[in-house]
Amino acid sequence: MDSSPGRWRPKALRDGEDPDPRFTLANERTFLAWIRTALGLIAAAVGLEAFAGDVITSSIRTAFACALLICAAILVVVAVARWLSVERAMRTQRPLPLPWASFLLAGLLATAGIGLAVAIAV
């Protein structure tokens, strides 16, 4: 464990022993993939609001764009929490947590896709 003075680390990163750097870097890459997904949701919201004016009514379009933005914000928070929980598990030699955020994201995107399909069809 690195206990360098003057170097602040969250408690989750102070407990246990440093894992193999390859595992920590893999965890970081996964975190960055979640962040890219959140950026994609933000881009989808902007694109929906900017370019779907003739296809979907304004109130429905704005509601879906806001829902996508809220999902993106939630995803960023979940990504940080997931990164910390995986890092903590690796440091303390415990099993990795279930990827519940994946199920959440899949459900949210399925709901958004179905809702948009209905809004376009109407």
Rank of each mutant, 00 (worst) to 15 (best):
M1L: 09
M1W: 04
M1T: 12
S3R: 13
S3E: 12
S4R: 15
P5M: 08
G6I: 09
A12P: 00
L13M: 12
D15A: 09
E17C: 06
D18L: 08
F23R: 15
F23Q: 14
T24K: 08
T24P: 01
T24M: 09
A26V: 11
N27R: 08
R29M: 13
T30K: 10
T30V: 12
L32D: 12
A33W: 11
W34T: 02
I35V: 15
I35N: 04
I35C: 06
I35E: 05
R36A: 13
T37H: 02
L41P: 01
L41V: 00
I42A: 12
A44P: 01
A44G: 03
A45C: 04
V46M: 04
V46G: 00
V46K: 06
L48K: 03
A50V: 04
F51T: 10
G53L: 06
V55H: 04
I56H: 05
T57K: 13
S58E: 13
S58Q: 11
S58K: 12
S59R: 15
S59P: 00
R61N: 01
R61C: 02
F64T: 01
A65I: 02
C66N: 11
C66F: 03
A67G: 10
A67I: 03
A67D: 06
A67W: 09
L68V: 06
L68D: 01
L69V: 02
L69G: 09
L69M: 12
I70L: 12
I70G: 00
C71L: 09
A72F: 06
A73C: 08
A73P: 00
A73V: 07
I74R: 08
I74V: 14
L75Y: 00
V76A: 09
V77L: 13
V78E: 06
A81M: 04
A81S: 10
R82F: 03
L84C: 07
S85I: 02
E87A: 14
A89H: 08
A89I: 07
M90N: 07
M90K: 11
M90E: 09
T92F: 03
T92Y: 02
R94P: 00
P95L: 05
L96I: 10
L96M: 13
P97L: 08
P97H: 11
W100V: 15
A101C: 02
A101T: 09
S102I: 07
F103M: 08
L104V: 08
L105T: 07
L105H: 08
A106F: 14
G107L: 10
G107T: 03
G107W: 14
L108N: 05
A110K: 01
A110E: 01
A112W: 02
G113W: 08
I114P: 00
G115E: 09
L116V: 09
L116T: 10
V118C: 02
I120D: 01
I120K: 11
I120V: 14
A121P: 00
V122M: 11
V122W: 12
